[in-house]
């Protein structure tokens, strides 16, 4: 092995793929390598927390001071801000550098960019939440399947045809629920191109409201349409449009069902043509409304305030469909009064 010249040592430090800085006791930067120089600028006369633009004064648990004090190596994760204003996550190590007399003369810090690891970590956390949400939805379906199977078996044992049928319906009902969840999840997990065709939005609205009218009436809810005849046709994904309206109306019905304060409940579905050729569809209800704490969460996947009754995927799918159309979904709500969801589809050339 040959000894390195000073020049060579510096060149090696400069080409290390991490930020290397040397600090004195007062946290002033004595030297920094090329990488640090490039991303954080000239360290001359700066302290390390100034160079790295750590917020406020020096860091709460200063690694450099620790290494000066106990002569040991320390590390922690930090966020630094580059000269250009970008935030990067780094893993920082501090290590004492001793002089000829054995005293700690300075402390060297290395900071490795771990932004990509951080990003991965975030995705994993998200994945974990998704799986937890999924498992919760499945638990209740399991209960339904358990129950259905139990009742079918009981009917078979007693040779009771009616009971077999009742149990079988429980099984089918829960099977449908699983199918819907799986479809929703697959829908959300893929980037997909909407299948744009010429559709008549008003007809789709009528179709969906016919599907729900009986159910709504059963809960004493009136379903009402206010359609703009100017909305003749539009370029949209017909299945997507159908899902959006279905999800919004289903939510509106739930909100009315859960509202115990008003005697009469009303849901209105509206269509409007904008001057710019856009089509706006609104679903307004006078149900429970959405309170402040809930407002920020409703578009999150698996967020549901309905306990076992909701998967929390409805609005997430809705939002995805609207994005695919280059459109938007917004809402305004007054707790106790009701909620209006607005889906806006921009004009699209044929």
């Amino acid at each position: 092995m040959h000894d390195l010249t000073t020049d060579q040592s510096v060149r090696i430090l400069d080409s290390l793929p991490c930020y290397v800085t040397l600090m004195d006791r007062r946290l002033r930067v004595l030297w920094s390598n090329d990488a640090a120089h490039r991303d954080f600028g000239d360290p001359l006369g700066k302290t390390c927390y100034e160079l790295f633009r750590v917020r406020g004064d020096k860091c709460s648990e200063c690694l450099v001071e620790q290494s000066f004090q106990d002569g040991a190596i320390h590390n922690k994760e930090m966020t630094l801000v580059t000269a250009e204003g970008d935030r990067i996550d780094v893993l920082v190590y501090s290590s004492p550098v001793r002089g000829d007399n054995g005293e700690i003369a300075s402390v060297v810090e290395t900071a490795v960019n771990i932004s990509s690891v951080k990003e991965m970590q975030k995705q994993l956390i998200l994945l974990g939440q998704t799986v937890a949400g999924l498992a919760h939805g499945l638990k209740n379906i399991m209960m339904g399947l358990d129950g259905g199977i139990y009742v079918v078996n009981r009917g078979l044992q007693d040779k009771n045809q009616a009971e077999v049928r009742e149990g079988w319906e429980m099984v089918l009902f829960n099977f449908d629920k699983i199918s819907k969840i799986v479809k929703d999840i697959l829908y959300c997990s893929k980037d997909r191109e909407p299948n744009i065709q010429e559709v008549q939005p008003n007809s789709v609205i009528r179709e969906v409201s016919d599907l729900f009218r009986e159910t709504a009436r059963g809960y004493g809810i009136t379903l009402q349409l206010d359609l703009d005849e100017e909305v003749t046709h539009a370029e949209m994904d017909p299945d997507g449009l159908h899902s959006v309206i279905t999800n919004l109306v289903a939510n509106a019905i739930d909100a009315c069902k859960m509202d115990l304060w008003k005697d009469e409940h009303l849901i209105e579905i509206r269509s409007r043509k904008g001057a710019d050729g856009s089509v706006t569809i609104e679903v307004a209800d006078n149900g429970t409304g959405i309170d402040r704490d809930t407002k920020d969460q409703i578009f999150e996947d698996f967020f549901s305030s309905k306990g076992d009754k909701g998967t929390g995927l409805g609005l997430m799918v809705t939002q995805k469909i609207m994005k695919e159309h280059g459109g938007s979904i917004t809402f305004r709500s007054r707790p106790g009064q009701g909620t209006t969801f607005t889906a806006k589809f921009p004009h699209r050339e044929t």
């Binding site: 339904g144 129950g147 009902f173």
Partner: peptide, 15 residues
């Protein structure tokens, strides 16, 4: 409030 759950639990308890 889920009729299916009521059916299941009552059936089981009756048995």
């Amino acid at each position: 409030d889920e009729p299916h759950v009521v059916k299941y639990i009552t059936a089981f308890l009756e048995d």
